[in-house]
Amino acid sequence: MNIFRLLGDLSHLVAIIILLLKIWKTRSCAGISGKSQILFAIVYTTRYLDLFTTYVSTYNTFMKLVFIMTSIVTIFLMNAKFKATYDHNHDTFRIEFLILPALVLALLINNEFTIIEVLWTFSIYLESVAILPQLFLVSKTGEAESITSHYLFALGSYRGLYLLNWVYRYYAEDHYDLIAIVAGLVQTILYCDFFYLYITKVLKGKKLQLPA
């Protein structure tokens, strides 16, 4: 465990906490894409199947369980408890256009053709694009609440920090996984436009508003 990896994990955890607090405190999930949240739940459940087969560390097991459980709680809050506040009309991204290509790609390009490894690879590919429905929703409404921006910033930073972790591990441990690296690169690039707006607007106290 190096500092980049730890900061990445913490950033991921902070993102999830911000999201849950936003929904709970404002009693509303307005501006949040339920479709991205469904994709994240699929990502965690397919990736962490190794909870049943491989033990890495207590930290690892704990974080995996937290990610799986919080993603399910988020979906419950959006689709049951605070359903009335959910932005159905703007959350129209077709997630099958992300799920199916990720699955096909995972069947074609993987480290080993076993069920658990193909599902792990699928989750890596799917995660890289899972934020698209959320970014699509923001672009459709043309704005995002600042709390939603903080959530997106923390969530985007997480894979960016992982990239630094992979550079570090390549040199320090001679360890690398091309599938994770390329997908992580794609994932981080998708956030670049948002990062730019976040730094130039939200951090200066302005609302994140897209040019008309």
Binding site: R5, D9, H12, R47, D50, T54, V56, S57, N60, M63, K64, F67, N111, E112, E117, W120, Y162, N165, H175, D177, A180
Partner: peptide, 10 residues
């Protein structure tokens, strides 16, 4: 290869 397939990251 087995060691590489032990995914120790999240």
């Amino acid at each position: 290869i087995l060691d590489q397939l032990k995914h120790d990251e999240l």
